[in-house]
C-alpha cells in the first residue's frame, strides 16, 4: 500500500529526527502531499511508541461542503481553530511544529533554520520575511545538510543540535525562486494562508538518510533579505546575538539558569554574523566561503 492509502487507513508511523509521529488523514491534499514530501523518511505501519499522534481531518456538518475546513488534532487535543481545507497540508506541518515546540523541553528550542557542513552547524534565526526559510532551502539544495527550517533543537547536555529534517516551508515569491533550483521537489502551493501562499519543499534524501547525526553549532548567522541591499556578511555583537536568540527561543524561559549557561556557551563558541542579501547565489557563496575557511583552518 502506498503512503497516501496508509495515511487514510490506520495511519502510519513517521520518524523524523528524534521524534516518531503517528500521522493520520483522510484528506487527499494531505495524503498525497505527505506521500511526496516524506517519501524518503523511515515509515512503518506499526511501531511500539509514537511521541505524538497527529491527524488532519475534514470538519463535520455544514463545513464539510460549504467552505470546507480542516481540523488538526494532536493526541486527541485540538490546539487550533479549523483552517480552510485547502491549507490542510501546511496545517499538518504547523501542527507538528507546535507539538514539538510545546512539549519537547528536553531541548532548548530556537526558532531558527539550521544547516550543516563538515560537521559544523550554521544556525539561521530570523523573523518571517527575513528570507530564513528560502536561504535554508537553497543551502540544502547546494550541498549543505538540512537540519530544520523552523526548530533548532539544542541538547542541554552537550550543545549538539539534533537534525529534525522535515519539509521546508516556502512562502510567496520564494516558491518560484526555489522551484528553479535543480533537484527541488515542491508540494502544490496552498493559497491565502495566514502567511500568504505556502508550498513545502521535500528535504534532500542525503539529509533524511543522516537524520541521526547530530553536530555542534559553529556559526550563528542572522539572514536579512532586502531587494535594495548589497549582499554582505558582517560580524555581530555577541551580547546582542545572545538576546536575539533568547527572544527567538520557544522555551528559553523554561530552562532557567541552565538555559542561560547553555546559550552563553553556544554564543561563546560560535561566530556571530549578519548576512544581508538581495540575491541567493552570492549569499550561498559567502556561506560556502565560511565553511571553506573553517575546513582549511581545521
Amino acid at each position: 500500500m502506498n503512503l497516501a492509502a496508509r495515511a487514510a487507513a490506520g495511519g502510519f508511523f513517521l520518524r523524523t529526527g528524534p521524534f516518531v509521529f503517528h500521522v493520520r488523514s483522510s484528506m487527499p491534499a494531505v495524503t498525497s502531499g505527505v506521500a511526496l514530501l516524506y517519501a524518503d523518511h523511515p515509515v512503518t505501519d506499526a511501531a511500539e511508541f509514537a511521541d505524538f499522534r497527529v491527524s488532519v481531518s475534514p470538519a463535520s456538518g455544514v463545513r464539510r461542503y460549504w467552505r470546507p475546513q480542516a481540523i488538526f488534532r494532536c493526541d486527541g487535543f485540538q490546539p487550533f481553530k479549523p483552517l480552510p481545507a485547502a491549507q490542510a497540508l501546511p496545517f499538518l506541518e504547523w501542527g507538528m511544529n507546535w507539538a514539538i515546540a510545546e512539549h519537547a523541553h528536553q531541548f532548548l528550542i530556537i526558532h531558527a533554520a539550521a544547516v550543516e557542513r563538515d560537521g559544523r552547524v550554521a544556525i539561521l534565526p530570523g523573523l518571517s520575511g527575513s528570507g530564513k526559510s528560502t536561504l535554508c532551502a537553497a543551502l540544502a539544495l547546494r550541498g549543505w545538510r538540512l537540519f530544520t527550517d523552523e526548530l533548532t533543537l539544542i541538547s542541554l547536555h552537550d550543545s549538539a543540535i539534533s537534525p529534525l529534517v522535515r519539509p521546508v516551508s516556502l512562502k510567496n515569491e520564494s516558491i518560484e525562486v526555489i522551484r528553479r533550483f535543480p533537484g527541488a521537489t515542491l508540494s502544490d502551493p496552498a493559497e491565502d494562508t495566514a502567511k500568504g501562499t505556502v508550498a513545502l519543499m521535500k528535504p534532500p534524501v542525503e539529509s533524511v538518510r543522516r537524520a541521526d547525526e547530530r553536530a555542534l553549532p559553529a556559526w550563528i548567522v542572522f539572514p536579512r533579505f532586502g531587494r535594495m541591499e548589497t549582499t554582505r556578511l558582517e560580524p555581530r555583537s555577541k551580547a546582542e546575538t545572545f538576546i536575539e536568540l533568547a527572544n527567538n527561543s520557544f522555551n528559553y524561559h523554561v530552562h532557567g539558569r541552565r538555559g542561560f549557561e547553555l546559550l552563553a556557551g553556544i554564543i561563546e563558541r560560535c561566530a556571530c554574523l549578519s548576512l544581508t542579501f538581495n540575491d541567493l547565489e552570492p549569499a550561498i557563496a559567502l556561506l560556502d566561503g565560511l565553511a571553506e575557511r573553517s575546513r582549511a583552518a581545521a
Binding site: V20, D51, H103, A104, H105, Q106, H255, G256
Partner: peptide, 15 residues
C-alpha cells in the same frame, strides 16, 4: 523515547 517526555515534564515543573 518515553523518558524524554518525562524529562521535559520535569523541566517544566521546575520552571
Amino acid at each position: 523515547q518515553p523518558r524524554q517526555h518525562l524529562v521535559s515534564a520535569l523541566t517544566m515543573a521546575e520552571k
